[in-house]
Design a protein around this nucleic acid. Structure first.
Lengths: 262, 262
DNA sequence: CGGTTTCGGTGCGGTAGCGCGCAAGCATAG
DNA sequence: CTATGCTTGCGCGCTACCGCACCGAAACCG
């Protein structure tokens, strides 16, 4: 029917926010790879060979328990990248990454990203800010796991996913969502059924459509909003698609901050 | 009775791990401050003026909910520092920090730490690795909140605290612990009473003594061990008190990694 | 087209944790 | 030494969620 849009590096907001100079160094080495649903990007404890920049795919990072249970801690889509621990120091983490929505990603070999990072220029700054945003998302997930109902968490999850897609539907079964949230499949069934009765979503056999986004936001816990707001503060050029002007090194002071510091 | 030991910057493992050169630049500006129990170090959304390096105190970082409930996401003691978001980009975070065990900390004004960080030397590297360790702790907290019982989480919490103290007792009421873990006070009472019957701890009116640490570790969930192991990999010189030799810049490759990467 | 697999709906008993209220014991101020 | 407040123990009903088992309907496949 319709022609599939050709993937492009600029679809990834982090890549798009890089200065032309940095882009010129990195883009020639970008490799486009398809990410099929449920593909395992990183296995716990294995060294990572690449850093991935999703364009239209969504990958979630899970921590596993000894008994096999797991919970997704954060979600990465076209607003970010997969593999921050390569910058931070470890070559691997005790977590695994799973493709939650199929699509494409560009990837770069580990050493190239490290080299660029060690220039201590724009990439370093962006990575740190992005990492801070991830930290907020993880922390909020932890609180959410403690205090909120499955209903609320499902809404949060759907919203997080929708923000990273250009369409309004998700391809995932309730069983799969259960694995993500670390709850029973039946729990998801009940929550989803409630949402459908309210007209917020419709679903059938692994295809979920969001019909009333405002409704979802109202039913979700505050966690979604907190993370979104904080991310906007930290990385306005990502969520609002503003592209930073060049300048190899951006003084931190020129980036917006929430508090009017000294 | 006994003479209180004089606090010293080297009691903080992060400070101790710095090269003599960096120490020479920073130590003259260190300011020793007492951290009384329950003091609020950072309030959500307020700009941070200092970075704190605890010597014998413990500070925990909490995320708050709108309805007043809260959960501690991570714990900082003499192995680390308070205020990583100053490096990462934000001047503030949506979290608050609470003194969980009274003691002392050295602090540095924000701009001095930023300056040293921007030299892109040893401090940068240490901070990134430490941040990675914090991320692991947060993620594991999130999973723990989802999957483990109050009993197990109490053990984890006690162990995390003991690792950061030189003695075997804690000054905190069960109500306070409840606030930390984000559970009811009565839940803590039941869990603690179980631990006391098993001879692992004894407690009375806000004073908890750890009698059988091995027992605690056996009763705790795996989360404690996972975080500890990962921290040892990332920062061996912190937990094992090895001091790095000078060299203003340490190539990442010389730091130990888990996987035998390329 | 018929068999098999996948997905979602439902019911049932069990349990961990919640909110509440109350009481007993220790601790400190006056 | 008494009064007051803080800490802990305990009981009660309630809800959310779990584990399990089973079923029907849709999709998939040869």
């Amino acid at each position: 029917m319709s022609v599939k849009p050709q993937p492009h590096p600029q679809q990834n907001h982090l890549l798009a926010a890089l200065s032309p100079e940095v882009q010129a160094r990195l883009f020639p080495h970008l490799e486009l790879v398809p990410l099929p649903l449920r593909a395992l990007m990183y296995e716990s404890g294995r060294a990572m060979a690449h850093v991935y920049f999703p364009t239209d795919s969504i990958v979630s990072l899970q921590y596993m328990m000894e008994n096999g249970a797991s919970t997704a801690i954060l979600v990465v889509g076209n607003e970010g990248l997969l593999g921050i621990s390569l910058f931070m120091g470890g070559e691997s983490t005790p977590s695994r990454s799973l493709v939650q929505s199929a699509g494409f990603a560009y990837r770069l070999p580990r050493h190239l990203v490290k080299e660029e990072f060690n220039r201590h220029g724009q990439l370093l700054l962006l990575m740190l800010r992005y990492t801070q945003a991830l930290i907020t998302q993880m922390a909020q997930t932890a609180v959410c796991n403690r205090h909120h109902s499955i209903d609320q968490q499902l809404c949060r999850w759907l919203l997080l996913s929708m923000d990273r897609l250009s369409h309004n539907h998700l391809t995932m079964t309730q069983e799969f969502i259960g694995n993500m949230l670390g709850v029973r499949r039946e729990g998801v069934t009940q929550a989803a059924s409630k949402l459908q009765q309210l007209g917020a979503i419709s679903y059938s056999r692994g295809l979920i459509k969001v019909l009333d986004r405002a409704r979802l936001e109202a039913l979700s816990c505050e966690c979604y909003g907190v993370v979104k707001k904080e991310t906007d503060i930290l990385l306005p050029y990502l969520t609002q698609r503003q592209v930073l002007k060049d300048a190899a090194v951006i003084p931190v002071a020129t980036l917006p901050t929430r508090a009017a510091g000294t």
